[in-house]
Design a protein around this nucleic acid. Sequence first.
DNA 1: CTCCTGGTAT
DNA 2: ATACCAGGAG
Length: 371
Amino acid sequence: MMRGVRDFPVEAFRDALRAWFQANARDLPWRRSRDPYRVWVSEVMLQQTRVETVRTYYERFIRRFPDVEALAAAELAEVLRYWQGLGYYRRARHLHAAARRIVRDRAGRWPQTVQEWLALPGVGPYMARAVASIAFGVPTGVVDGNVRRVLARLGGLKQPAVRDLQAWADGLVDPRDPGMFNQAMMELGATVCTPVRPRCGDCPVRTFCRGFSTGRPEQFPTPVRRAEPPEERWWVVLWSHRGRWLLGHKRDGLLQDMWLFPMWPERTGDVETDVLTFWSPPDLRAAADVLRPLAPVVHEFTHRRWRLRPVWIPWPDGWDPPSVDGVMASTGMFQSWQWFPQAYLRRIPIPRAHRKVLAALARPVLRPMTG
DNA sequence: CTCCTGGTAT
DNA sequence: ATACCAGGAG
């Protein structure tokens, strides 16, 4: 057991936390049911994502895919479309794959133990314990980012090991209602024991808290600064022809299975040199004639920052259809490509970064293209 | 603007 | 250890 955690008044802590949660729990859509499907979907969405963002997505998703059978029967593209804008699209692909496993391999029988949940794709230590405790009453503690912070402050721990926190959470969890206890811990972290300026005055368990007694709760756990993500500069080509737009289906890695406008790395800063060299000579001359620079877009991921320079190429209706295969193949990032009518852009999964590019069409150019 | 947050897979 | 997204708060 960790220093500072010995002789922790477990029963009194549970009582104070329970009373607080019963009076202060936010009314969230996924809390109205202990249906494993709903608990699971909400937990997947809430991973790495804020409650207010998830709320809208969750309700739409449940309307469209009301149970695990409906999700398993759906196409991946459809699932991704409902996930569009939430980020971490791998979550959606795993959710979909796991739904198919539950329906096909388990004949719709739900995993109930932590071990069974862990066997599903996209389910790790946190999620397995969250769903098992909330939907099935398994007496196990969960340690997500919120709980980690709450426990670190309670124990006055600067750099707690996850294993120790898990062990502590397992000992703390209320066996009478593990799901409620876990949700209460996370709720406390989300609304009171916040990363900056925690509201200790509103905290139901401050009398148990070493962080509070030190007067500097924000020091637990020790804050760490994230490194600057490296920057990448890309040209993005919005190619339109007879009311259609050319997009590619991303093959792998970042934004896999999403639809993107073709992109080329910026090298010289001159679009004809960097992009149009991959085009056939007649296409090159024609494209240069109708090329329209758009306002730049910045989009930040965890691990890299994109500076996008969108270029609109409105291919005149009267001209021959452009030959796109060689051009799209030259990007090396798509498994297929397609001309989509304007109205269809709402029906395919396009990540936020390229939605911003699309929005740049409606704005005036802010800077010249060269330089 | 700047600084901050988050689970799983590999 | 690193890849993966899109925000919010101040």
